[in-house]
Simulated assay, not measured.
Amino acid sequence: MRLATAEIDINALRHNLAIVKQMAPSSKVMAVLKANAYGHGLVKIAQCLQGADAFAVARIDEALALRAGGLTKPIILLEGFFDSSDLPILLANNFETVVHDENQLAAIEACQLEAPISVWLKIDTGMHRLGIEPEQFEEFYTRLKQSPNVKADTKLMTHFPCADDLNNHFTALQIASFTKLVKGQSDALCLANSAGIIGWPDAHFDWVRSGLMLYGVSPMLDCVGVDHALKPVMRLKTRVIAIKHVVSGDRIGYGGRWTCKEDTTLAVVAMGYGDGYPRHAREGTPVVIKGERYGIVGSISMDMITVDIGSNDKSIHVGDEVEMWGPSLPVEEIAICADTIPYELLCNITPRVSYDYQADG
């Protein structure tokens, strides 16, 4: 019996890529695969996204894993490189790098490379995390253009902190300030992340960076129940491993966190924080068994969760499948129950969870 399993729907993945292209038909698509493709499996997901124009990762080891997996598309390092010794590796593997500070620019200028590399210059328009200040743009841009270590096709980018909120006008201000700053340049522009793709079509430009939406999860605020035509790629599932009858007054799990108000029946399922399920999911967080929703009760353990199945106990048996999130139970909803975000839930899947990649046709 397979217990904790992440079932990955490749058809849904490709459907979501098609939605990105439909929303931004004039843009090239950068598929963001950082953090093990948001918990979905880095190399396998990349191999199934041949329709993307490029891949993007956060760290050089992720990029190297893609090359080792046979991926030949352009790969962009979103955080750039961290030491001048990385530059020959970038060149040898045809990696493209973001440049966001003086140290990176100086390292490129000082390095002796056998051929130039591709650079994405990141401008900070209000995220205040990575990126050069707008007043530094002319200097950085000129130095990159003059460096023999940099290809002529320098690309320009920024990042949105508030694009998930359509009522927050800061994104519009960022778009306006960025386009004003780079006016007159012929280089390719990249502004929109997943939220920008969905909510801010004026930000699409030459490239879009699709991350969370590729995996069928909405990046927008108040997203539960909103249809962006995306399909969940991951179905996290497990099995019932025990049926337990309890009576009124019984206290359930570590710390006796939950007390039975009446006689009931519990299903014990093989899932816990050791698999990446959020330990602080509140009482009543739903799971789906045989098409019906039931609420979690008691403390979430490392390996097990208890679910109140009440008077339905006769229809549920040991070995029955339990969906923790997926097409019948959006991960966005579980994130709300755990006071977190879908990104964290997907990225926290642990190595003991089995992966099952499925595709029709």
Rank of each mutant, 00 (worst) to 15 (best):
Y294L: 08
Q174S: 10
M30W: 12
D9T: 06
I60F: 01
L42P: 02
K73Y: 00
I10A: 05
Q104D: 02
Q146P: 00
G256Y: 13
H317Q: 13
V20G: 00
V119H: 13
W207F: 05
D187L: 03
L214M: 01
G199F: 06
L156E: 14
V224A: 08
R279M: 12
R235G: 07
L105I: 10
F178Q: 12
G276E: 13
S26G: 04
I108G: 15
S218F: 06
R209I: 01
E333Q: 03
E344T: 07
H100M: 02
D339Y: 14
I10R: 15
I89K: 11
R352E: 09
N149C: 09
V247Y: 11
A192K: 15
P327C: 07
E139P: 03
K244D: 15
K237F: 04
H204W: 02
D250H: 07
V240R: 09
D61F: 03
A110I: 09
T97E: 02
A195Y: 09
G361L: 13
P232Q: 09
H317T: 09
F205C: 04
R209Y: 00
E323G: 02
E333A: 08
L189H: 08
S328K: 15
L173R: 15
M127N: 01
G284C: 09
D101A: 05
R14W: 07
H245F: 04
S315A: 13
G291W: 08
I117Q: 02
I305E: 12
Q47C: 00
D164W: 12
V226T: 13
D275Y: 11
G196E: 09
S186P: 07
G41T: 12
M1A: 11
N193I: 05
L90Y: 06
H228G: 01
V32R: 14
V32D: 07
A56W: 07
L189K: 14
A58P: 02
L66I: 04
S210H: 02
N149L: 08
Y254N: 11
I252M: 03
L345P: 02
A188P: 00
Y355M: 03
I305Y: 10
G326Y: 08
L33P: 01
E135Q: 14
E138F: 12
Y254D: 05
I316S: 03
V322I: 12
Y273M: 14
W325M: 10
T350I: 08
I197D: 06
T265V: 03
Q47K: 13
Y215T: 04
C337W: 12
V297S: 03
L236I: 01
K237H: 12
S85D: 15
F82D: 10
Y38Q: 10
H128K: 15
D202L: 13
K290S: 00
T171W: 14
L13V: 03
L144F: 01
V297T: 00
K290E: 04
Y277N: 08
A107L: 10
N93C: 10
G284K: 07
A31N: 05
I243W: 01
V29D: 01
V247T: 13
T350E: 08
C190P: 00
I89H: 07
R59Q: 13
W120T: 11
N11E: 05
F55I: 08
S299D: 13
Q50A: 08
K28P: 02
V226F: 07
